[in-house]
Design a protein around this nucleic acid. Structure first.
Lengths: 169, 169
DNA sequence: GTTAGATCATCAGTAAAGCTGAGGATCAGC
DNA sequence: GCTGATCCTCAGCTTTACTGATGATCTAAC
């Protein structure tokens, strides 16, 4: 998950160049920068979530379910843009921890209605606080205004391409 | 690699809410935004790299080696912040394609000196052009100035924490 | 109404990325 | 000339995510 120590910092090298971070040829590569931003965030988030016994992905599932009002597994998977089969495994874990409940859909017996339990909502609320704190620490080097701008840029990048629109599955 | 279609766009739902993207409870979550920015970039980069038969990670290795001037495997791994054992596999692949060369280090027989071949440099140059183009397309929604600002913010996030400094391995 | 095709949840198998731990070879300090 | 550290390699594990198949159920066309 995190590389060695959680930050990319590296000691000066034996004989050679003083070792830069990020290394010159990659300092401008978006893929590299995004990847390591994620690694840093994970290094902060994981310890923050450990007390709650859930992962960031599980927290995301809880958030979507709590917001969604009786979603089927497939609907929840679509909102998170994760695979239907991945959702099965994710819900198995959350259900085993007593954080979500699967019930048969009243009008369609193929579906499960998935909802957080009371305990699930409680854990979610606390875990959300913890991860927001982790985010805040990652973003600390930027000012408040710059951090907001940064998030907006990210949202602009992942927004659907101008005029697409094909069925997904 | 990419989820369903490469963008997170999703059709309006059958009965329920019109389905937003990113979904409301995650629109402000940094982890979610970073992850999907990466997915979008991968969806653009992979086709761009396919003609060259290398992955983004392999391109990164080539870049570091070309810049580094006779690095050992361990040195290269440290610069990229990847595991030493991962580097072994990565170099096996690049060597099999004739893009890098392992030679014994003159003064230290434990080490390999790893360098791109002439072909490796040629492929690297072209592949770099292709991925820069993919980046440019991802960043298109931001203006030029905003894109630059965005990258600088990312660099600020992954910079080593203020006053750390412990040996890595 | 019955049947053909779509949809939902699930499972088995696979692949990529990354890590740990162990090994053998070599080097450096004492 | 030992002892401990360093470098490369390999085997095995974990996580995340996908494909494809199966069975149950729904929908629509007939």
């Amino acid at each position: 998950m995190s590389n060695h120590t959680g930050t990319g910092a590296v000691e000066p090298e034996d004989g050679e160049r003083p070792e830069e971070w990020p290394p010159a040829p990659l300092a401008d590569r978006l893929g590299f920068l995004l990847k390591h931003a994620q690694i840093e965030l994970a290094a902060l988030s994981e310890p923050a979530l450990r007390p709650f016994g859930i992962s960031g992905r599980e927290l995301a599932v809880l958030s979507v379910l709590a917001d969604g009002g009786s979603l089927s597994q497939h609907q929840a998977a679509r909102r998170l843009a994760i695979d239907r089969t991945t959702m099965v495994a994710l819900l198995d874990g959350l259900e085993a921890k007593g954080l979500v409940e699967r019930r048969p859909h009243p009008g369609d017996r193929r579906r499960n209605v998935v909802e957080p339990t009371a305990e699930g909502r409680r854990v979610m609320d606390e875990a959300l606080r913890a991860t927001r704190d982790a985010e805040r620490r990652l973003l600390a080097p930027l000012g408040d205004a710059e951090a907001k701008r940064f998030k907006e840029a990210l949202r602009a990048l992942i927004a659907p391409a101008p005029a697409r629109g094909h069925p997904i599955h």
